[in-house]
Amino acid sequence: MDLGLFLQTIVNSFQGIAMYSLATFGIVLIFRTSATTNFAQGAIATFGCYVATQFGVINGMNLWVSLVLGMLTAFALGVIIDNFIIRRGKDVNAAGKQMITMGLLLVFTNIIPVIFSMITITTPATKNFATGSFNFTLLGQDIYWPYQSMICVLLAVVLLGAVFAALKFTKWGLGVRATASNETVAKMMGVNTKVITALSWAIAGALATVAACSMQTVLNPAMMGKAQTYGFLACVLGGLSSFIAPIIGAIIIPVVINFAAIYTSAWAELIMFCIVLLLILIRPNGLFGKKFIKKV
């Protein structure tokens, strides 16, 4: 493999990295605060993306405004789901919560085409923020970087940066970290865990909506399925004991796929799955994870 191809492949992976990190971060945020894996994450994001498409493409609004509207919808959905469904369950365990989100997935996937009957498979997605590409020379090699991908990366960096800063420096972030380490104790220390988890669900939904909008596929209710599977894998690959490790997992996955695709495009994903599963087997707590200590 020559240097040009190598660099180009890395640049090509940027969009995937941006998208999967946004999707993954939502999963890890919910996992840390509510101790469950959210199967409905992709469906909520799809709903937000459909809202954005409805306003941005069908009604002809500004794309950025419609994106914000989509994010707000997903934000509200997250709050509603956490408040009225996840919290209300009578002593539901983790597997039960997981299945509740699976029920939500069923509901959303079926309701989306009915609510947005104007959006069909031929509707252009809100994916075209920009056209053309940025051509530059790096180490004597000509590289092109589409503006679309650049905008997605910028969005991801800004949004994730903002959330990480909030986690580090705000009272909400402290609350999230406290809830993540132990919900009962956090409650006893005066943390309003209800607000914390509701906001986590909301932020996860909003971030995943951006991921859905930056995805380069046709619109359909199941469009986030793959991103979600990769998100889960990235979480386990990176390790769920910190917020940053799953993002590293989300960086590894698209890069591996793109490099494998150079040799064989049909089997690229299979190769990625095999590599990632082997890595997880070697390090069951994740590449950067700490061992969970179980009490008897």
């Binding site: 894996t37 997981q98 894998l233 386990v236 049909a266 994903e269 299979l270 799955f273 599963l277 087997l281």
Partner: peptide, 25 residues
Amino acid sequence: LRIEGIFLAIVTLGLSEVFYQVFMN
């Protein structure tokens, strides 16, 4: 034996995806 709980669910999900890729390709 090595992986438990939710992690096991995700690893088996990955395994199922491996089969899916084989069926597909």
